[in-house]
Amino acid sequence: MKKLICSSLFVMFALTGCVAKQDLSYLEPLHDRQLRSLLIAPVKNETIDVMAPTSVLATLPFSLAEKGYYTFPVNTVKVLLEGEGYYEPAEVHAAPPESLASLFGADAILYVTIHEWTSEYILLATTTKVDFEYKIVDNSGQLLWQARKELAYSPQQQNSTGNPLADLVAMAITAAIERAAPNYLPLTRMANGQVFSGPQTGLPPGPYSPIYGEYYKKVAEQSVNPAAN
């Protein structure tokens, strides 16, 4: 809970002047709507790894729950969408958001597209990379928020024993393990966390967040007295 509150306070601190002043105009559409429920659309995959969408989709509900939003169960969403004739993520992303939101009574839809999901092996190093695009559209079809995040992870660079030969062997082993079974999930969780809670992209707290009331009290105060920001 302490970790959740600390990560959620970032945007509020920015609003109250506890950190360097920055442009938070991107939050205005989200403040106006004060979303409660989000429909997570099936993840669109532009890579050759067929398991990538499943891995990304598995991390999104938890990441959004940490922010205080209700998300519809992804398996139920999949079954209901297939019942409506939507079998491919690309079809869902191309469908009218008003129609999709009305099927579930959702306030908005989160669309995620995977642009990169690779693990590159060069000499004694393996680097795992992800590139995700995020977009939230409300139930009237209005774009409320969008972000993109690229991250890379090279496990063989994490530790050093001070012994060059031992480090070389360790790097080779670590790189081989990562190449054989790339560890995408931690990188995906990190990408979600940085997008949903980071500077210039962080979402405001949802209604199930412990700081929701205090946050929107500050928003209301600043709308009455902008000079206080």
Rank of each mutant, 00 (worst) to 15 (best):
K135A: 12
Q146V: 00
W145G: 04
E214C: 03
Y215A: 01
Q200P: 02
L168K: 10
N192S: 08
A176G: 12
P205T: 01
W117S: 03
L124G: 07
A147F: 08
Y208K: 05
A147N: 12
A170Q: 14
I136G: 12
Y215D: 01
T118G: 13
L144D: 05
S209G: 08
Q157D: 15
L144Y: 01
Q146R: 07
N159Y: 02
K149W: 02
A170S: 15
G141S: 09
E133N: 06
L165M: 13
T174H: 03
I173F: 11
T126I: 05
N192R: 05
G162E: 04
P210T: 00
A181I: 12
T113N: 11
L165V: 04
I211M: 07
L187F: 08
N139W: 00
N163Q: 09
I173H: 03
T128G: 12
Y121E: 08
T128D: 12
T127K: 14
N139P: 06
Y134W: 09
V169Y: 13
T126N: 11
S154L: 04
G141H: 06
R189M: 13
A170C: 09
L168W: 12
G213Y: 01
V130E: 05
G213V: 01
E116N: 12
N159H: 02
L151W: 03
S140E: 15
Y153H: 07
T118K: 09
M171H: 10
R148F: 09
T126R: 02
K129V: 14
A108S: 11
D107C: 13
F132L: 15
I177D: 05
Y134P: 14
T201S: 15
E116Q: 07
S119H: 10
A166R: 01
R179M: 05
L165S: 08
L110P: 15
G162I: 02
Y134S: 06
R179S: 13
R148W: 06
P199V: 00
Y216D: 04
